[in-house]
């Protein structure tokens, strides 16, 4: 595998918190149009890896390349516009806004009205609001959340909030979607819905997806390739079948399950 095949390239990323290395020289690539799962026991550094990619943490060493940009050096607020979106393990919605406005807020990078045009709310700004509203309604229909369109998200149950957060990430129209435990804490039915949505996004829109997930059965079912982290180090990478048979993985992860 050469670097040029990769859509996203993580090179020797090392991240310290005080004296503790949360990530230690981790390298891997994500190919365009695949679902890559990152797995590993609790505290392995999966979320930290996602935080580095999305510009939320700055690793002390290493590079993360995406479409010719080094994400470790890109200002955080400019990363979304490169075509990268994510969801959070602990849900980070705008709790005071409705479902609709949460998704509309994500259209920020696609809207062209400046603040003065917002204030006047006339002509261009008004037309733009309607145009983006139309796009957002498509996502709302796709995720089957039309009934909570105008509900303030702070009041929604956990499973629905996870779904709205996925909607907000989709409203960015990303080329690369990072999902941090999208199904954690859900019941079986909600998990199945979420898996169906993820596969739909992947198949219909060709979005590349990096997914952190604990449910091994699910990971094996939907991902093309798997990266395994343990204590901040990459201990394996490969197809689900290869990873499943890997000695180190069985020992570190499947072994204690």
């Amino acid at each position: 595998m050469t670097a040029s095949e990769n859509f996203l390239t993580v090179e020797d990323v090392t991240l310290y918190f005080g004296g503790n290395a949360a990530l230690c020289e981790v390298s891997f690539g994500v190919r365009r149009g695949e679902i890559l799962a990152i797995i590993g026991p609790n505290g392995a550094g999966k979320t930290s890896m996602l935080n580095c990619i999305s510009g939320f943490y700055r690793p002390q060493h290493g590079r993360i390349r995406f479409k010719g940009h080094d994400l470790t050096k890109t200002p955080t607020h400019k990363i979304a516009a490169l075509g990268l979106a994510r969801t959070f393990q602990n849900i980070a919605l705008y709790t005071g806004l409705s479902t609709l406005d949460n998704l509309m807020a994500a259209r920020h990078i696609h809207m062209r009205q400046n603040s003065l045009q917002s204030i006047l709310y006339w002509g261009y700004a008004r037309r733009e609001e309607v145009a983006h509203r139309r796009r957002v309604e498509e996502i709302i229909d796709f995720l089957e959340i039309a009934h909570i369109r105008k509900t303030i998200v702070g009041a929604l149950p956990y499973g629905l909030r996870k779904r709205v957060e996925l909607g907000r990430a989709l409203a960015l129209e990303p080329e690369l979607l990072l999902l941090d435990e999208p199904m954690a804490g859900m019941n079986v039915e909600e998990k199945e819905d979420m898996a169906r949505f993820i596969l739909d996004i992947y198949e219909r829109q060709g979005t590349t997806i990096v997914l952190i997930e604990h449910d091994m059965g699910l990971v094996m079912d939907i991902s093309d390739r798997v990266v395994v982290l343990d204590f901040g180090q990459k201990i394996a990478e490969g197809t689900p079948d290869e990873v499943k048979r890997d000695e180190k993985v069985i020992h570190a992860y499947l072994g204690d399950a």
Binding site: A92, L93, Y94, T95, D101, Q113, I119
Partner: peptide, 19 residues
């Protein structure tokens, strides 16, 4: 409008807003 939603996103979750 766009301006107001950006302001509210700063209030509700500044870290997410930046991302």
């Amino acid at each position: 409008s766009r301006l107001g939603r950006a302001l509210i996103s700063v209030r509700d979750n500044d870290l997410a807003a930046e991302l």
